[in-house]
């Protein structure tokens, strides 16, 4: 009898947790997507909550401090960790993406404080939505500069 009660209590908690997890997942899921994948989807991707990665192109960074509007372009980079390793590491992949003019690019708009790490060849991870005008409106902007942290060997003097 007592055992059943405890079992019931446990099941109730379990059910509640499962419900919480699934409903919350549904409410806040963002698809991880590369620029090529997003372009391939075309208008189907418009309006979805996406998590986009790409390489920041330094020349395109513009910041209007009056409105705190930050605009820049990012170039396609592969998302796969192994592919990145094969191509010579993240820093190299980002570098290639930026200097290659044929790479797919997308314009990003972000309203807020300009992040300290935003610079040429940084990896940008942006959470937001693609709108009909083809611009990606980021609500969250996360940056990584692999050259800073990865093992970059010193330049030889000769």
């Amino acid at each position: 009898m007592q055992r059943n009660k405890f079992l019931l209590g446990g099941l109730l908690i379990l059910a509640a947790v499962v419900y919480l997890i699934f409903s919350s997942t549904k409410a806040s899921a963002q698809r991880f997507i590369t620029i090529d994948e997003m372009n391939a989807e075309g208008s189907a991707a418009v309006g979805d909550s996406l998590r986009l990665t790409g390489a920041v192109i330094g020349d395109t960074i513009q910041y209007d401090p009056q409105t705190l509007t930050l605009t820049f372009e990012v170039a396609h980079t592969p998302a796969d960790f192994d592919v990145t390793e094969e191509m010579g590491g993240l820093a190299e992949v980002l570098h290639q993406a930026v200097i290659d003019p044929t790479r797919a690019r997308v314009k990003v708009v972000y309203i807020g404080v300009q992040p300290d790490l935003l610079r040429n060849e940084a990896q940008a991870i942006m959470v937001g939505k693609l709108e009909k005008d083809g611009i990606f409106y980021a609500e969250e902007l996360l940056l990584k500069c692999p050259t800073r942290y990865e093992e970059a060997k010193p330049q030889s003097s000769n």
Partner: peptide, 18 residues
């Protein structure tokens, strides 16, 4: 077959009642 992430809203929503 697709990488989907959940952000802070997921954790906030799911852990708040707990």
């Amino acid at each position: 077959g697709e990488k989907i992430t959940v952000g802070p809203p997921f954790y906030e929503r799911a852990t708040a009642p707990l």
